[in-house]
Design a protein around this nucleic acid. Structure first.
Lengths: 159, 159
DNA sequence: CTTAAATAAATTGCACACAATCTAATAACA
DNA sequence: TGTTATTAGATTGTGTGCAATTTATTTAAG
């Protein structure tokens, strides 16, 4: 089973330039996946999946959020969000109720249990610190570059 | 539908420190998802999904790869990889064959069609450049920080 | 006022992603 | 040598993630 034998031995300059975009997108993909993976076990202990955790974090920060608003904040559409919120309701962390003034909206509300979960979840963020091995400055830089990229993509997506 | 009203008005210092870990993990999650989203349409044109593209990129770089080796390189286990590779085989881009010397291994081999696809895919990486709005230096920094983080996670994962 | 357009959720179908388990093949060792 | 342990892939079950469609409600236009 040969390893690391390059097929296209002599990579052209063009190749090299194109490579960066792909490598960046791969690093992003892999890094996000690995980070989610290390969060999995700690989250399991408090009864959340990663996606459910993202939703709960949003609810811990803001109140009176409609499903639509949550989705906009965490980049998820109703196809993903509806079942996630329903599961959170089943676990007793949130309640869902239609808004009286506009029955199209579903308001998602923290329950007492959901609010209490915030304390249990307080040690979760340390998971990343213990595993990522970046200095504080590096972490800040990474964070701000990711947000800048995210903002760029959000503004004008021309595929 | 109230927006941006913080429930826990007075965030403690502790909160602030913990917040960074969570925000970083969220930015990673969101950014990776958005990048995959903008790759979707261009990839669809050449008949690949994002995951299939990652596998093909790996095969364009190396030859004689077993499923195991591919999985290690792109952080995927057989549960994900087996069906993806089978789909690539169905599309005619790769062939799968058991290794004679050790029947446990499946060797994944590019077909003529799979090799030719590399040229069609040559414009794909520009997708990111057109959408991410980072300078060359920023892109390089982001890339290296992601790889450093990835390496850190890979070395010793203590959850 | 009535029909048409717009909007928020829900539903459906397809493609991952991964833990857990199973199967088959090889390696290790008593 | 025969049994056990290890290993690579395949399978199964659960949970996203998203495009496309549907449903219910509200708004806009004529």
């Amino acid at each position: 089973m040969g390893t690391s034998k390059e097929i296209m031995g002599n990579a052209t300059n063009d190749d090299a330039i194109l490579k960066l975009g792909n490598e960046l997108c791969f690093s992003l993909y892999a890094c996000a996946k690995e980070v989610i993976r290390i969060y999995r076990k700690p989250l399991e202990k408090i009864g959340l999946t990663y996606t459910q955790y993202i939703v709960m974090m949003t609810l811990w920060q803001f109140c009176d959020m409609s499903a639509k608003e949550i989705g906009k904040k965490i980049y998820l559409d109703s196809g993903t969000l509806t079942p996630v919120i329903k599961k959170l309701e089943k676990s007793g962390f949130v309640k869902r109720q239609r808004v009286v003034e506009d029955e199209r909206f579903v308001k998602v509300i923290l329950t007492e249990k959901g609010l209490k979960l915030k304390e249990k979840a307080s040690t979760i963020p340390q998971t990343l610190e213990r595993n990522i091995y970046l200095s504080y400055d590096e972490t800040m830089t990474l964070h701000s570059l990711l947000n800048k990229a995210l903002k760029g993509i959000k503004e004008g997506t021309k595929i």
